[in-house]
Structures are given as C-alpha cells and as structure tokens.
C-alpha cells in the first residue's frame, strides 16, 4: 500500500517537473555538462597539468587542438575547466551530503523531541546563524590543513543550518500524525520512529532544499578557491581558474571567460531545477 502511494507521488512529481520547460532544460543541461566533464577530458590530447611550451597564453585554436585556448603556462583550458568542474561538482555534492546528514538528523530529532530539547537545539542553530557561514568555513580552513577532503567537510559542516530548520518544521507538523502514533503504539523506540517513519515522510522538502543547496555549495567552494583559501594549484577548480583568469583578463580574456561561463551555467541550471522541483513536489506550500 505505502509503496504504491509513494510511487504515485514521485511519478506525479516527475511528470510535473518535466512539464516545466526551464527545469527540464536545466536537468538535460546538467546531465550533458556532467557527461562532458566525465568523458570530455579524454577526447583532448592534453593532460590538465601538461605544459605546452609552444602555445603559452594562446587563444582558442583548432589546429593545435587547444579548443578553448591555453593559460599563461600553456596548459589546455578546455581540459582544465572540465577538471575544475569535476572538482567543484564533486565537492559541492559531497558537502551537500554532509549538510544533509547533519541537518536532517538535527532537525528531525529537535522536531520530534519538542519542548526543551527542541528549544536548546534550535537556539544553537540561531546563534550560528548570526554569522554568514563563509566565515566559519574560513576559520576551519585556517585551523586545519588545506586539502580537498577537509574543504568539503568544512563547507558541509557549516551549511546544515537551514536544512535543520526546514526539517524541524516538517517534523513538528508530522509528529502527532496517526502513522507516528501507530508506530509508537507498536513499540517502536524514538530512534526508529524518527529515522524509519518521520524522515521518509519529509523527504520532499529535503530534496528541494538539497537541490537549491548544491549551487550555493559550488559558489562557496569557488569563492574560497578564488581567494586562495580553497583548492590549491596544481589542482584546478572553477574558483581558482577564475582567479587566474581575472589576473590575465586584460591581455587574455578567454582565460577568465571559459571557467566563468561554465560556473554560471552550472549555477543557473541548479537554480532552475530547484525551483522546478519545488513547484513539482509541493505546489501549495511555497
């Protein structure tokens, strides 16, 4: 019974999502971008850290197969941008996952427990909210050594606040519903009720919010890498590629244009997809 009802909800949502032209195009665009980021670098004869001494700072050039040009050191921009997109996407997805785990757990426990526990837990969230989370990430990057591993953990560890609020609100409204009472009366403990009964029923808003969170994570990562606090050379990320490009933009504007376009496209697609998902999954609430 339950499985059938759920499939109905999700397939309905999918149909509504695909009917939304902007969201469907974005989904397609993202799939395409991800595909290119995975397969694309293999099509070029160049490696991301390979220096081409004869083609330093060259504009896009088909004859030498530097399709999008090279940077000051003669590294192929097409390959580096795709590698950067890979790194940025991977970090954003992992950071979102970390935030999701912390935020859903925190919010669901606070919402289900209610009362004083809820008050204390949410007060803590309020306090951390007082400061834009980029500042906490900066502290964490100062405190720990800089590596891609720790970067996504740090970004994820500070990004869960809004998720916790969303989930807590949902959990509060669900905790007195019949199915929760039924589970409790069958002898399910609080842990089981929260994670087996409550959480699966609030996945809709969680999915929407997670999709809207990914572009923010990409922006945070690029922001830090742009400032030199995130991903470090020779590893490429969209942020440090844009930073390189900004330094050279007067004489070689394509070094900025290529990664910047890629970043803006990704962020655009995720935002439209998130908006579409929001409309598709919950037409009445937002």
């Amino acid at each position: 019974m339950r499985a059938a009802a759920q499939r109905g909800l999700w397939s309905d949502a999918l149909r509504r999502l695909l009917a939304n032209r902007a969201a469907a195009t974005s989904l397609l665009g993202l799939a395409l971008l991800a595909g290119i980021a995975i397969v694309g670098p293999g099509l070029s004869p160049y490696a991301p850290d390979q220096l081409d001494w004869s083609m330093m700072g060259s504009p896009p050039d088909w004859a030498s197969r530097h399709w999008l040009g090279t940077d000051r050191l003669g590294r192929d921009l097409y390959v580096r941008t795709l590698h950067g997109a890979r790194v940025s996407l991977a970090i954003a997805l992992l950071a979102t996952l970390v935030s999701l785990l912390i935020g859903v757990t925190w919010g669901a426990i606070a919402g289900y427990a209610g009362g004083r526990i809820d008050e204390v837990m949410m007060r803590f969230v309020d306090v951390l909210y007082a400061l834009p989370n980029i500042f906490f990430v900066i502290i964490l990057t100062v405190v720990f050594e800089r590596s891609p591993m720790l970067l996504f953990l740090a970004i994820g560890a500070v990004g869960w606040l809004t998720m916790a609020r969303v989930v807590r609100g949902q959990a509060l409204s669900l905790r007195h519903r019949e199915f929760v009472e039924a589970a409790v009366s069958c002898g399910a403990g609080p842990g089981r009720v929260v994670f087996r009964h409550l959480v699966p029923n609030l996945l809709g808003p969680v999915v929407v919010y997670a999709t809207l969170m990914i572009p923010q994570m990409i922006l945070i990562e690029s922001f830090l890498s742009f400032l030199g606090i995130g991903i470090q050379e020779p590893l490429a990320s969209l942020g440090n590629l844009i930073s390189d490009g900004a330094a050279e933009m007067e004489s070689a504007p394509w070094i900025l244009a290529v990664p910047a376009t890629c970043l803006v496209l990704i962020v655009f697609c995720f935002n439209f997809l998130g908006d579409g998902l929001r409309d598709a999954l919950d037409p009445r609430e937002y």
Binding site: S222, F223, F226, I242, A246, M249, L256, L263, F268
Partner: peptide, 18 residues
C-alpha cells in the same frame, strides 16, 4: 543574482576601469 561577485568584479574593473 546568479552571477557571483567574483566574476562580476573583474569584468567591471576590465570594462569601466580599463
């Protein structure tokens, strides 16, 4: 809203400053 500050700022410096 979608184009981040660290892309707009260098572009603005290039166009209006240079």
């Amino acid at each position: 809203i979608a184009v981040p500050v660290f892309v707009v700022a260098p572009l603005a410096a290039l166009v209006f400053g240079i």
